[in-house]
Each structure stands twice: as C-alpha cells, then as structure tokens.
Write a protein that binds this DNA or RNA. Structure first.
Lengths: 203, 203
DNA sequence: GTATGCTTACCTATCGTTCAGTAAGAAGCA
DNA sequence: TGCTTCTTACTGAACGATAGGTAAGCATAC
C-alpha cells in the first residue's frame, strides 16, 4: 500500500509525542513501533521537528474545521457557545493523543509550535472569541474579558483528558470525611462544563 | 553561610524544571547556574529525582498551608471558595516557576510525581472539594460533580500562568474583524475567575 | 586527623542526525 | 521481449554531542 509506512510513522509519532512531549520522545522508539528503522523516518521527514509539525498540524486543522462547522450549524450565541464546547470536547475524546500533545506544548509555552501551527490554533480560538464578543454585543452575554472564558473552556477540557492517572492517584489520598465523586467521562464533563460556562457568561 | 550552595542549587533547579520539565532539564545547566559543578548536586541530593522532589514538595506544602489558612479565615461557602481561588492564584503569582512545574507534571500525567508529592497536592485539592460539598449540603451551591469545578479553577489558573508567550503569539494571528481584549494580569484573572466560578456554582 | 563540601576527570548510554549502500520496480530504448 | 538506467524506499553502521552518574582526590574547619 502506498505511504503505509509513512502513516505508521505518523501514528506512532503521535502516540509518543503525546506520551513524552517533543524533546523526550525518542525517534528510535517511534521507528521501532512503526516497524521501520530510524533513517526511514528521515526519508519521509526532514527532521524530528518536521515530523512533529506534521503530527500537530494535521490535528489542529481538523480541529479548527470541525469546530467551525459545529458552530455554523448552531444559531444564537448560547447555542453556538454550547456547540463550540461540545465539538472541542468530542474532538479531544476522539483523538486521544491530541490533548496530551497540546498539554505538553502549553506547558512549554509553545516552544516547539511552528508559526503555521500557531496560526491554525488561532482559528479555533478566534471562533470562540467571535461567539463571546457577538453574544456580548447582543446583550446575551456579560463578559469582562473573553480571554478568561476561553482559558476556562480550553484548559479544563485539555487538562481533564490528560490527567486521568494523577487525578485518580490524588483522589485516593483525599481525606475520607466526605464522599469522593466519580471521575466524570468526557461526555459528562463536556455537558457539565457547557452548563457552567453558559451560566457564568449570561448577562 | 551554611547550606548556601544547597539553596542556590534548589533555586536554579526550580527555574530549570519549570522551564524544561523534569526530563529535559539538565543537571549540568543547573549546576552551572548555581555556581557549582555537577557532582556538588550529587553531594546534596541522591539523584535527579530527589532534587526534583525537594523542589516540588517544598512548594506543594507551602501551597497547601497557605490555601488552608486563607480558607479558614473566611466564613461561608461563597467567601471560602473565593478565598481559595484568590489564595491559589496569589501563590502561583508569587512563586513564578511553580505553575510551570505543575503544568509539566500534569501534561505527563504525574509521571514524575512521588507519592509524598501526590499526597501533598491532595491536601490542596481536598480543601476545595470540602468547600464545594459543604456549600452543596447547605443549599448555597448546586453542583453536579465537584471535580469539574475543581478542574476549571486549577487548570485555568495554571494554564494562564504558563502560556503567556504562546497566547500572545496566537492572539497576533486572530482575525482582525473583532478587537482583541488585553491579556489579563494574574490579579485580574483571579478576580474574574472567582466571579465566574461563583456564578456558575450558585444554586 | 578526621569529617565536610566540594572539584577534576571520566564512565556509559542514548540522543538526533548523516552517509553509504541496496533491493525492487518503473521507464526508456532496442 | 530483453537490457539498461533511474527513482523510490528503505537498512546498517557510525558520528558527535550530551545526558545522568561515579570514583578519587583535595582543601578547609574543627
């Protein structure tokens, strides 16, 4: 099959970059998991950074497209904001490794993010900014700074997806004098988050 | 002065772990910045992991203490929740490198976090869980799952602190048809976040 | 003279990267 | 069809750099 090795490399790379981040991910391990040798990666990609960008950019584009489409098919600021949150959450849920890649990138303050990737990410983020500003203009929302609502949405969704293990570990240490609530699924989280965000931005 | 080199190592280590994460931070660089050589680090600490734990644990303990104290001096669920958010935000603001260390740890799903560190972190997190459950019992709050509110608070504060550069980069690409709101300061963010969270959890 | 607090020198492992070489197949020409 | 040539898609071996970690020795304080 054409490009099948290349696809395998991309898949393994996504997995390893999500697990270890750009620096700590090893090309040797990625090659081993793809069933090729290290130089085979260099045949398909210029270097480690190019491989990373291919992995990241593909998903950033898909995310921006899916979010834009979901928002367009909804009407009114409230519906659109809910559609945004649910589309974002669904995408992270579907593309398991993507949230962790973004989390690593954010924890490095975008050190490894190319300009093209940053541009693609801004498409997704400006979608929600537009919704919030539109809602504020129409008097439906009351927002002091849309950046805060944006941060609340994006960071909560990403962190929830990437901190499953540590959350369970930390929860096991919580003092026993109050019951521990079950860890929400991505679907539940998305719904509850949308409810909370909408409640918090309504005029 | 007694232990002055040790203190210098700890300070430089905190800076480098926050900038690069556990794996990517280099002991050689940490030693250079502390004005000592690499084996001097091994004189004071068993290995890289022990140095990291010393850096992390010290701040996790301080955070839990300060948050507990702030919450205790407030009365009623609403006041206490606000006190929690503001104390957390103030701590992150004061200890510049700590948010990034936590962000790296979370993006690795706590891979490098020792049990003692996880236990210390659970003190901070169970503080807010207690507030939320108490508020729900008293009928002041209406909460489906306190984990979600917790995630919203913690992830927003940490991400805000660690993503200054990438946020500015991404913002510069945002489509120009709506004005860009200024990036909020930590103080502003904390206040706005507290307002939003309170609004979203009120019964 | 002995413990403390380091330094110099060095070890091994692993990293990203490069280079020379090669099996397989398509393309060109008789 | 049969022979040559070029391209594609790799492999094996090795490179220099850098990582965490260690062994041994030296200066100072008590």
């Amino acid at each position: 099959m054409r490009d099948s090795k290349r696809e395998k490399i991309l898949l393994a790379a996504a997995k390893h970059f999500s697990k270890f981040g750009f620096e700590a991910a090893s090309l040797e391990d990625i090659a081993a998991e793809s069933g090729v040798t290290k130089p085979a990666i260099y045949y398909h990609f210029k270097d480690k950074a190019a491989l990373y960008e291919a992995v990241l950019l593909f998903r950033l584009k898909l995310l921006a497209d899916q979010v834009e489409r979901a928002v367009e098919s909804a009407t009114g600021p409230e519906e659109r904001l809910r559609a945004y949150i649910e589309a974002f959450g669904a995408f992270l849920n579907e593309h398991g490794c993507f949230a962790a890649i973004l989390a690593h990138e954010f924890s490095d303050d975008g050190k490894q993010m190319s300009d093209r990737a940053a541009k693609e990410l801004s498409r997704t983020l400006s979608t929600v900014t537009a919704i919030l500003n539109d809602g504020a203009e129409k008097g439906v929302f009351k927002i002091e700074n849309p950046m805060v609502a944006q941060m609340m949405i994006v960071s909560t969704l990403i962190m929830h997806q990437t901190t499953r293990t540590i959350r369970a570990r930390v929860a096991s240490y919580v003092r026993g004098d109050h019951k521990i609530s079950p860890d929400p699924s991505m679907r539940d989280l998305t719904r509850i988050l949308a409810d909370k965000i909408l409640k918090s931005v309504r005029a």
